[in-house]
């Protein structure tokens, strides 16, 4: 067992967990924040993406112990009671169907927009499609996800 303490969605949390606990297991099973999902075993689907110290990471591919001391944001923490502009954009553009990949998509999308805006790079449709390499959706065919992210990017700029 290892004691891990970190900040999750702005709240300090601490627990003793087996050393082989994945960050996603800690989030889902210990903290009961079940918006972060697991959709594959090989770090490819991106349903588990969270932000660790402000960067998108796959919580199924890191140990909880390795996140000791980190500032973690999950889908439950990106907005208070209302929707984040990216969440609104997904709704308005019908960027989700079954909803399972959606939290990971949103976390990847906000990370992508922040990086592009920080670098002053244009987030084109091609760039969005390329940036989504690590997120798989089986329902939407991506058409509306790509539209939603473009819309979310402009909403985040004006927000």
């Amino acid at each position: 067992m290892t004691e891990v303490s970190m900040t999750v969605n702005g709240k300090a949390v601490k627990a003793d967990v087996p050393d082989n606990t994945l960050l996603v297991q800690y989030i889902r099973e210990h903290l009961r924040l079940t918006g972060t999902h697991v959709g594959c075993d090989t770090s490819q689907c991106g349903a588990c993406v969270v932000h660790v110290d402000g960067k998108a990471m796959k919580s199924c591919t890191m140990l909880a112990a390795a996140a000791d001391g980190a500032d973690v944001t999950t889908i439950e923490g990106i907005a208070d009671n209302d929707l984040h502009p990216m969440q609104t954009a997904f709704k308005e553009n019908h960027g989700l169907q079954c909803g399972f990949c959606t939290p990971g998509m949103i976390m990847t999308a906000t990370d992508m927009v922040k990086r592009y805006q920080a670098d002053g790079r244009e987030l084109t449709e091609d760039a969005i499609r390329h940036e989504l390499e690590g997120n798989i959706c089986r329902c939407t065919g991506y058409h509306n996800i790509v539209k939603a992210i473009a819309d979310g990017a402009s909403k985040m700029t004006s927000a």
Partner: peptide, 21 residues
């Protein structure tokens, strides 16, 4: 009409089988 079910999925509040304990 925009989807009524979206908000819970967008907020991570969907309730899938593996979420149930």
């Amino acid at each position: 009409v925009l989807r009524k079910e979206d908000k819970r999925f967008l907020m991570g509040k969907g309730r899938y089988t593996d979420d149930i304990v």
